[in-house]
Design a protein around this nucleic acid. Structure first.
Lengths: 211, 211
DNA sequence: ACCTGAACACCGTTCAAGT
DNA sequence: ACCTGAACACCGTTCAAGT
């Protein structure tokens, strides 16, 4: 009964992704994954060199989802292209909450990573940006190109009580929480930031910016 | 000889920071820290509840450096204030390379975290931003308020060879690496992004932006 | 009352012994 | 040649036994 379906790297990686989706990244240990796959721990080492390389493969499989979600139809106007791919990345990262930490922990430039960066860069170049300016704009977009919405305000759940935090101003607490406008809408924040940055980029491009 | 200087929470946290500075965050284990402090592992639990709380304390001690580095003199014009504090944060994070991962792993809103957010928010409010717009601008600055410069291009060391990556365009590879302008200057990228975002913020403020 | 050695339930990975 | 149980060197944390 053990090993009915023979193990291969795809099954290993898919198992790791499923496990991370269900119980978080910290649940993904070689031993636990092996037991989920009904296999002895050592068997995994036939298909992945070590745990680091397993993480690499998990990240690659998530980034592959970016392109799929982006549709990849006919080439669009640069701004639409950048927006579409970035939002696609964001939706993949939202589907796999562990992906953010996993992506940030990687230090190797995988083909998947490069492919995504090239798609965005090419859109900017086609849109008339110089290589220099395109590079700076990519940096300004920063982690947002990976679909990360900076979680500025960890633990949003508990309301911020100024009386509990010595000296914090009521008006500042309100601004931090944006209590006036109800709860903070992450989708809105993401596209607000994207628009502000792309507006700035377009302005620099149009004015012929040089370093 | 063991326990010559009696242990206290400050010594525990300082020891953890030193250890992380020297050997990285992953070297900070309760057992290893205990042995560095010439103490039995269990002794640490008298001063920190568990490892999570030790991380909390390490992060708090780093964020405390932000304010120190920022000088905290007389109140400045909003843009100078935001820039100064953000750069101060960046320099602290550069001094402690593990800090970024540690800060991002925290989920509780500590007084140190709140204090930094309040200082930035207050500067914006004093500068004439509405609480709403101040909130959105904070989101747009994103992780940069913690001094993180998004490491877009992991493994920058090895030059990007287009012939090794199927289909990547030479011109895109150049833009990604910015080979034309020499190596990528992280300091320049950080202040370029900061300026672009603060320019955009100021424009929205001046035009009386409303959602 | 305080302190701590041993134990528990885990890790990632190696390696030698078994088929 | 392949597979894998046991082992190694670690974890964080608990707990009971010793002073």
């Amino acid at each position: 009964m053990t090993g009915r379906t023979p193990l291969n790297s795809e099954r290993v990686v898919a198992g790791a992704v499923t496990l991370a989706d269900r119980e978080g990244l910290e649940a993904v240990s070689m031993r636990r994954l092996a037991s989920d796959l009904d296999v002895v721990p050592m068997a995994l080492y036939k298909h992945v060199r070590n745990k680091e390389q397993l993480y690499d493969a998990m990240v690659a499989s998530i980034i592959a989802e970016y392109g799929v979600a982006a549709g990849d139809g006919s080439p669009k106007e640069w701004r639409e292209e950048v927006t579409r791919r970035t939002i696609a990345a964001r939706s993949a990262v939202i589907r796999h909450p562990w992906a953010r930490r996993a992506i940030e922990s990687r230090t190797t430039r995988s083909p998947a990573v490069l492919g995504h960066m090239e798609a965005l860069t090419s859109a900017l170049l086609r849109g008339g940006f110089t290589p220099d300016l395109a590079h700076h704009v990519m940096h300004t977009l920063g982690n947002r190109i990976w679909g990360f919405s900076p979680e500025l305000f960890p633990g949003e759940s508990a309301p911020l009580d100024p009386t509990q935090h010595a000296g914090i101003l009521r008006v500042a607490a309100d601004a931090i929480e944006r209590r006036s406008g109800g709860t903070c809408d992450e989708d809105f924040e993401f596209s607000f930031a994207l628009d502000l940055i792309l507006d700035g980029a377009e302005r620099l491009r149009a004015s012929g910016w040089r370093s």
